[in-house]
Simulated assay, not measured.
Amino acid sequence: MAAMTETRTPGPGDGGAAYVLDRAGLDALVAALRARGRTVVGPTARDGAIVLAELESAGELPYGWGVELEAGHYRLVRRADGAAFAHSAGPQSWKNFLLPQRVRQWTADREPDGRLTVRAERHDPASYAFLGVRPCDLRAIAVQDRVLLGGRHRDDAYSARRTGAFLIVVECTEPGATCFCVSMGTGPATGPGYDIAMTEVLDEAGHRFLARAGTAEGAEVLAEVPRRPADAATRAAASGSVAAAADRMGRTMPPVSLKALMAGSLAAERWDDVAARCLTCGNCTMACPTCFCTTSEDTSDLTGDHAERWSRWDSCYDLDFSHLHGGPVRASSRSRYRQWLTHKLGTWYDQFGSSGCVGCGRCIVWCPVGIDITEEAHALHQEALARGAAPEETP
């Protein structure tokens, strides 16, 4: 499993060992991973969107497809070229595989003699290979690792899926209109934590992928596929494409400490404005690659002799999420949106040492009324400036 470290990972333009794969090499890469017994999951065009699904071959990748994004808007569009990874984050994230929406925790059965037998669910280790992980989503996986693998409250089901997962990151060269990973420090170039990193290059010299290993297993897999040493022109094209993507981000966050901004904006008038638009549907939390909240629900059969406990995704927008004796703590849409935003951008630092936002823009795209997290942060910043209480700008 590729794990997050503090060491710097070489980028596409660095002088470290790198190779060039063509489309046949990408096919061989998928075949090599499947031959190792791994379930390869990657993007494919299906049902009018780029979705994550099991791949039997690299031919199922969305060659020639891109996306058109805006607040509350997503469209799959044809591209003039045959790029496989020239699309932004889709409706799913890798959370759908590492932290599925519904997981059984235990079963209980009443035996004929009246005794009750409780069996904890066994979570067998999975053997995933994720192909096409974006740098922002790589950071999101690291965030969920910190939440679900660290501390006293380890999630065994998550651990079984995450341990041994093989991560192939594809650096972003086509940011969407709702992307703001540069503001969050999560892309478009990749950080540490991958097994293989690739940058897609498509120019007059052909369609190819600059690849480099981040782990020993990544190097072993690359050694099994047709490849050639990276040439200077491919390195330069890859580095230039990633740098250009950083300059084409569709959104930004205000250049201040977001943690300080959130802490100083609890009584801001802007919360009333967003509350008038928010449906508290929870779409943003379902699409977010780092939201991790779950609840437990118990079920039984009609005889009462068999019962099960399941864990399923929950949302802080749910009225019952903060329910205590006497009623919910956060009864208004104002308080629930404020809880989500201030936790994601502010108090997440206090709990986990980082932001809970990676700048993927999914919450903007999949909000049915088009509420934009970056617009709200800028509005809060402007309101703080107007009252002379804005935090200092970040360097």
Rank of each mutant, 00 (worst) to 15 (best):
W106G: 01
W340P: 00
R162Y: 02
Y19V: 14
E375T: 13
P395W: 14
G187W: 01
C281L: 09
Y74G: 07
R75C: 05
A189S: 14
T234K: 06
T285E: 13
V143N: 08
T299A: 14
C284N: 04
E6S: 14
L380W: 01
P112T: 10
G11V: 08
P175Y: 00
D156W: 07
R251Q: 11
G59W: 07
K344A: 01
V358G: 02
C179P: 04
A276Q: 10
H153R: 12
G176C: 03
V201F: 05
A129G: 06
P100Q: 01
M1E: 09
D272L: 11
S355A: 11
V182C: 03
E297C: 11
A2R: 11
R334A: 09
D47Q: 12
L61D: 05
W313M: 02
P91M: 09
Y349Q: 12
A389V: 13
I196F: 03
V358D: 00
P255S: 05
V242M: 04
G187L: 03
E60H: 05
G48S: 09
D305R: 15
L26K: 09
G218K: 10
R119T: 15
T234P: 04
F321P: 01
L345P: 00
V242Y: 04
A28I: 04
F85E: 01
H306F: 15
E204D: 15
F180Q: 06
L319R: 13
G240P: 01
